[in-house]
Amino acid sequence: MSTQSERIKERRKELGLTQQQVADPVGVSRVSITQWENDPSVRISGANLARLAKVLKVSTNYILNGGPSRMEEPSGQYHLENNLAAAPAMHGQVPVISWVQAGAFTEVCHVELDPEDTIWLPRPPGASEDCFALRVVGDSMVPRYNPGTLIFVDPEVQPENGDDVVARLTDSSIEEATFKRLILEPGAPKTLMAINPNWPHRFIEINGNCEIIGTVIADMNLRRR
């Protein structure tokens, strides 16, 4: 059975693509593609894996596990669109995921994404490869974050007092993640707080029943959706 590296290299050559032609739309360097094609032990992040699968026109499962799970592809040679500019390699892109997917983020190394349906946004400067975006719902964090605001969440950033975080309550039957401000004050219990002063049950005391999924490092509002 072929290795992950062999499948990536073989598929790239089948499509007649150079390593650079794969690297640009994935948002990584050519050196990264070389590593992926030669070192089977290299772990590809969930976001990069989804973009790589889209470029190679295969499923993420085919890259990871092999087998007859390639996506159906049109006949003829595959050509990259020359009217699209790749995201800067130093930043890459992040997926916009659902709150249910965010709630499951700590249980797996990455969430399963559909390369065709996932919305991708430029990765904020300094963010890790595991950074992802969420669209705010509800009014618990107004006026700072209105419904529809996109927040960028980085699991690699250690939260500090006053940071806004996405968390999962392990003693709750609700699968979705929650978005609150983390309060870490000396002599006081660790607390998640809704910014909205009129929000019912504004404070949630946490003591081992909460997993911080990631820290909000940036946000943006779109004029059109």
Rank of each mutant, 00 (worst) to 15 (best):
D24K: 13
P25M: 04
V26A: 09
G27T: 09
S29I: 07
V31K: 08
I33W: 02
N38H: 12
D39R: 14
P40F: 05
S41K: 12
R43C: 01
R43P: 07
I44W: 09
G46I: 11
G46F: 01
A47D: 11
N48M: 04
L52A: 12
A53V: 08
K54M: 00
V55D: 07
L56F: 09
K57T: 11
K57A: 12
V58M: 02
S59N: 06
S59L: 03
N61V: 09
I63Y: 02
P68C: 01
S69D: 07
S69R: 13
R70T: 10
M71E: 13
E72Q: 10
E72Y: 04
E73T: 14
E73S: 13
P74L: 07
L84C: 03
L84I: 15
A86Q: 01
A86D: 11
P88G: 05
H91D: 05
Q93V: 14
V96C: 06
V96K: 15
W99K: 06
W99V: 12
G103M: 11
A104N: 15
F105D: 11
E107G: 10
E107I: 09
H110I: 03
V111Q: 03
L113D: 02
D114N: 15
D114P: 01
D117V: 05
P122E: 06
R123C: 13
R123W: 01
R123Q: 04
P125H: 14
P125C: 03
G126L: 02
S128G: 13
S128Y: 05
D130S: 13
D130I: 01
F132L: 04
R135Y: 00
R135G: 04
V136W: 01
V136A: 08
V137T: 15
S140G: 05
M141A: 07
V142P: 00
P143V: 12
